[in-house]
Write a protein that binds this DNA or RNA. Structure first.
Length: 269
DNA sequence: GTACGGCCCTGTTAGC
DNA sequence: TGCTAACAGGGCCGTA
């Protein structure tokens, strides 16, 4: 499940492969989620950015191709159009010697593509309302606490909403809450706990990037490689196993239809 | 504005 | 063995 570290890993690998290259042709699976791929034919990719879990590929005509990988989305280069792959949802033929095909594969079709005027995300609600990037200097513990405090919903729900901070999904939310010793259903954070949670979010996301992402099943890097962060998880996917801090049995609950793993002893409500 | 449930999707796994 | 149902979950949308 691509979250910020996975998207950032793909972005870093993608940038040198697409910037300065013109889109000669494109195609897409017949769905509104993917047909915007064809809107960039004739344009040249000029930049490769990221906001939260969204990839932002700038073009020379002042637009952006916005890519969300969803649950199972993968970007990769192919020698030719792979007509045998039933899960190829979009592709772009890039100029150069040789010409290359960038493909977007997405088994479950939770991913989506959009082409927007550069910087205008009004048609993408979650992106438009996204909170600060984790390493934004303006994101102080005080601001983070205030953003969390704007709703009385559980802190886990808040993190998944992308509003207090951009790019956190189910895996890194569970990891950061475990590391900070905060119960996922906590609704109020004092400044100390807000500061701790922010620090742990930055740490787990940074470690995720350093390890090339978390590959549990579908996530792949641009070259098809896997990340290694899955070998360093303390909470996510470990329900029923002992807490690495206190040896209590980790529990599993459901928040917002997402499996949530936590330590009932270390993470008090 | 906010909260919440339902929906989109399909491969994998559990249960009968 | 073969079938069915449950499950995984990020984002969007309709409703309250």
């Amino acid at each position: 499940m691509p979250e910020l570290p996975e998207v950032e890993t793909v972005r870093r690998q993608l940038a040198p492969r697409i910037e300065g290259r013109r889109v000669l042709d494109a195609g897409a699976f017949a769905s509104a989620k993917f047909v915007p791929a064809m809107d960039v034919v004739g344009a040249t990719f000029t930049s490769t950015g990221r906001r939260g879990k969204y990839l932002l590929i700038g073009t020379d005509d002042n637009r952006e191709l916005v890519v969300h990988l969803g649950m199972t989305g993968q970007l990769g280069f192919h020698a030719d159009a792979d007509h045998d792959d039933p899960y190829q949802r979009a592709w772009w033929l890039l100029d150069g010697q040789p010409e290359e095909l960038l493909g977007f594969r997405d088994v479950r079709r939770f991913g989506r593509l959009r082409v927007v005027p550069a910087g205008d995300y009004s048609s993408i609600p979650t992106l438009a309302a996204a909170g600060p990037e984790p390493w934004d200097e303006a994101l102080t513990p005080e601001l983070f606490r205030e953003l969390i405090g704007r709703s009385r919903r559980p802190v886990k729900t808040q993190l998944l909403s992308q509003r207090p901070i951009a790019g956190v999904g189910n895996i890194y939310a569970d990891e950061a809450l475990w590391a900070a010793g905060i119960h996922p259903r906590a609704t109020r954070l004092g400044i100390d706990r807000a500061e701790r949670l922010l620090a742990e979010l930055r740490r787990v996301l940074g470690a995720g990037i350093d390890r090339g992402g978390t590959t549990l099943r579908d996530y792949r890097q641009l070259d098809g490689g896997t990340g290694t962060n899955q070998f360093h998880l303390d909470a996510y996917g470990r329900a029923g196993r002992p807490c690495r801090r206190c040896a209590s049995e980790l529990r599993s609950t459901v928040i917002d239809a997402r499996t949530t793993t936590y330590c009932p002893r270390c993470q008090r409500a």
